[in-house]
């Protein structure tokens, strides 16, 4: 029992991390796009749980709100509009791409090794910055908004302009040219 209490956070971490990894693998394995989308949803939720474990409550809430509640719904919306019940029978494995498997797997393995090496060798970020504003203890929300709107205001605004460009681009591409309304 004492062991359980002492290692509770680690147990939860491995549980959530397992769900995240298995869900990510299932996204690739499942043939039905709906099932793959649901597996992705599980991954998103598990990652939100990991954020909570790391004391980033705001990030967890935003993860659920934006990714699980918004983006995945739009994914499902798009998937349902195509006739998915036919797709899974069609061949999905492209033999032409077989020679590229080895370099791709090698690159992934190298990335993984770098990540594992980095855990032990790279310095950790300032964990206190998650819950403090200029050294004063505050909530995670306050800390995030402080760095977003004070420290990193310019990059934040630049990103919002990039997103605006993307939105306008999508509207221009998606708009149907109707005669009489053009230009």
């Amino acid at each position: 029992m004492d062991w359980m209490v002492a290692h509770f956070a680690e147990l939860v971490f491995f549980y959530l991390a397992g769900i995240a990894v298995i869900g990510a693998a299932c996204v690739l394995i499942f043939r039905s796009p709906i099932n793959a989308a649901l597996a992705l949803l599980c991954t998103f939720l598990a990652i939100a749980g990991l954020f909570v474990l790391a004391h980033a409550e705001l990030l967890a809430a935003v993860q659920v709100l934006v990714y699980a509640g918004g983006i995945m719904v739009l994914f499902l919306f798009a998937i349902m509009l195509v006739n998915v019940r036919v797709l899974p029978e069609q061949p999905q494995f492209m033999r032409k791409l077989l020679p590229f498997v080895v370099p791709a797997a090698g690159a992934l393995a190298a990335l993984l090794l770098v990540a594992i090496w980095g855990v032990g060798h790279l310095p950790l970020g300032d964990l206190a910055a998650l819950t403090s504003v200029e050294g004063v203890a505050a909530g995670n929300t306050e800390a995030v908004s402080w760095s977003l709107f004070m420290q990193y205001l310019l990059p934040f605004e630049v990103v919002s302009i990039v997103l605006l460009v993307a939105i306008i681009g999508a509207i221009v591409l998606g708009r149907k040219e109707t005669p009489g309304e053009g230009a």
């Binding site: 809430a61 659920v64 709100l65 699980a68 509640g69 719904v73 499902l76």
Partner: peptide, 8 residues
Amino acid sequence: GVSSFGIY
């Protein structure tokens, strides 16, 4: 976040 989940 949680109530937007009901849409699933």
